[in-house]
Each structure stands twice: as structure tokens, then as C-alpha cells.
């Protein structure tokens, strides 16, 4: 198929950046969206131009590296699908496709389609863990966990930290990401001792980064490639309220 691509180009963090338009012929409809970008980059290199920088690694929808806003939608048109798992068969011959980086104050652009998402790491660093040193653990089956709870915790823990929720939100809120981690650990007995402290610290860090507040537009859930549910945001709010009331802070 034949495509017109309008791609965001930006040299570095300080550059203003802008769109460039490229024509691409001979794209196989079985190729993935990133393989289509490989073909574009090969073409650019052969023309002596600089290829488009973009984050990617696993290309299996699990590492959370890939991050393109495609025709205005984070990770493109398909539900529950990362950019790397999107295939060209979902586009038509002759289409014009606009590709931009995540747009959010909390995720500054480093180059072209690559953004800095280290704010997420800092939120985890603030409290997204269970404090257990290596070697301190009791026998695994001494902790019984209801299957249903364990499954719910798993579903929250399936978040890949891609940041599409932030990119999708008009307020650039990170509540879905934070809610997923708070839920994962709050649902399990292992997370219980630090339950209150964790949510307070993670929310404080989230607020210290440049993320906006949540106004319940649900755009995050709609664009999340892992189908992380907004019930996690509700749980985050409950946990936060409860922690605030009980911790005396």
C-alpha cells in the first residue's frame, strides 16, 4: 500500500519541532506499524537524511517502550493494542497518517517521537513496592490468597508503564498508572503493612511531577493498551482518603 506520513520531528528537548511529510510506497499490509517505520527510516537513510527516532524494544506489546500518537490517538485506532502490535492491515491504501509523540508536560520530548517518562519511575521509587529484603521471605504457600483477589491484583499489575493514559488525558493525569500500582499492592496481603504510607507517598510524588488532576473523562481507560480499568482510580481515591483519615497527616 501507499501512504502519506506526517511525522513530528524535533531535534532535542529545546527545539520547537514541527511536522514533516513523507511518501511511502510498497508497505505490506501484514507489516506492523513499527516495521512500516523501519521501512521509512531505511528510505530516509538512503536519501542521506536523519531517520525518525522512536522508542521500542520488545515489539510484543509488553515492555511499554513504544509510544506513538497515531491520528490523534495514543497507540492508534485499535482497542487494547500497543503501537508495536498494530498492523498495517488496519489502514487503507492511500491513507494519510499523522504521528506524534506523547504530549504531556510530565513527559518532555527528547527527540522526534521519544519522550522522557522517568517521572513514572520516580513515582514507583516513592512507594510502589513491598519492603522485603532478599532472603527475608516466608514459604510462599504460607500466604494464602483468594484466587479472585489474586486475579484482580494481577490485572492491575499488568500495566506496562507506557504512559498512554497520561497522553490520552486532556489534563495529563497519571491516575490510571498510579491507581494500577496502588491497587496491585493494596489487594494483596503482602502489601498490607505499608498500605497507607504507600498511597500517600505515591500520590505526593505524582503531584510533584507535572501531571494534572483527574476529572473522570475515562479517556485513559479507553486508550490503555492493557485494558487497565478505571475502577483502579476509584480504589486509589478510596485508599487515599482512608489513609489520610487514619494516618493523621
Amino acid at each position: 500500500m501507499q501512504l502519506t506520513l506526517k511525522v513530528w520531528r524535533q531535534k532535542n528537548r529545546d527545539d520547537k519541532g514541527g511536522f514533516e511529510t513523507y511518501q511511502l510506497g510498497n508497505v505490506d499490509h501484514h507489516a506492523s506499524f513499527l516495521e512500516m517505520f523501519d521501512v521509512l527510516n531505511d528510505q530516509l537513510i538512503n536519501e542521506g537524511k536523519e531517520p525518525v527516532a522512536f522508542d521500542h524494544d520488545c515489539r510484543e506489546g509488553i515492555c511499554g517502550a513504544c509510544s506513538m500518537v497515531i491520528n490523534g490517538r495514543p497507540h492508534g485506532p485499535l482497542k487494547a493494542t500497543t503501537t508495536c502490535q498494530l498492523h498495517m492491515r488496519h489502514f487503507k491504501d492511500g491513507d494519510t497518517i499523522t504521528v506524534e509523540p506523547w504530549r504531556a508536560k510530565g513527559f518532555p520530548v527528547l527527540r522526534d517521537l521519544v519522550t522522557d517518562r522517568t517521572a513514572f519511575d520516580r513515582i514507583i521509587e516513592a512507594g510502589g513496592f513491598v519492603s522485603v529484603n532478599t532472603g527475608q521471605a516466608p514459604d510462599a504457600n504460607s500466604i494464602l490468597i483468594e484466587k479472585e483477589k489474586s486475579d484482580l491484583a494481577f490485572e492491575a499489575a499488568a500495566c506496562i508503564g507506557c504512559g498512554a493514559c497520561v497522553a490520552a488525558c486532556k489534563n495529563s493525569s497519571a491516575m490510571l498508572f498510579v491507581g494500577a500500582k496502588v491497587s496491585h499492592l493494596a489487594l494483596l496481603p503482602q502489601g498490607e503493612p505499608e498500605r497507607s504510607l504507600r498511597v500517600l507517598k505515591m500520590v505526593a510524588q505524582m503531584e510533584a511531577e507535572s501531571f494534572g488532576s483527574c476529572t473522570n473523562t475515562l479517556a485513559c481507560e479507553a486508550e490503555c493498551p492493557k485494558g487497565i480499568s478505571v475502577t483502579n482510580i476509584a480504589r486509589l481515591n478510596r485508599e487515599y482518603l482512608w489513609a489520610g483519615l487514619t494516618s493523621g497527616k
Partner: peptide
């Protein structure tokens, strides 16, 4: 397995 479960790995 003990260590991972203690960390909250949802096996």
C-alpha cells in the same frame, strides 16, 4: 518463589 511472592508477584 518465596522471595517473589513476598514482593507481591501475583502468581
Amino acid at each position: 518463589i518465596d522471595q517473589c511472592v513476598a514482593q507481591g508477584v501475583p502468581f
